[in-house]
Amino acid sequence: MNAHHNASPPSSAEDAVTLTVDGRVLTAAPGQSVGAALATNGITAWRSTRKNGRPRGLFCGIGVCFDCLVEVDDVPNQRACLVEACDGMQIIGTYPQNERGQA
């Protein structure tokens, strides 16, 4: 996954939901999408393209482009922009861990 920066992390810890992303524990504001939870925690890419292995994350943001696909609780190829982040969710991306933090 591609961690870039902290955009706007959730404001208060007590009402936050906790999810695991490739083994890393993140918090998100309740009601946020998985995509928003990832992006607000500075993760902006979580999928590698099949052909060129390039990083992808949110693009259309409304379920049209399928760029933000991610595995959620053992169900592969879910649109991160549409799935609501829930407490205890296990998220698995395909973008290599070692690319994290590179811009």
């Binding site: 870039h4 955009a7 890419a45 992808r56």
Partner: peptide, 25 residues
């Protein structure tokens, strides 16, 4: 335009409206 961080304009708006957050700075 396929780099992460390039988004549809409407996707940015949807992000804000639906999540009360921003996808970047």
């Amino acid at each position: 335009w396929e780099l992460p961080g390039a988004m549809a304009a409407g996707g940015i708006q949807a992000f804000i409206k639906g999540n009360a957050a921003l996808p970047g700075k």
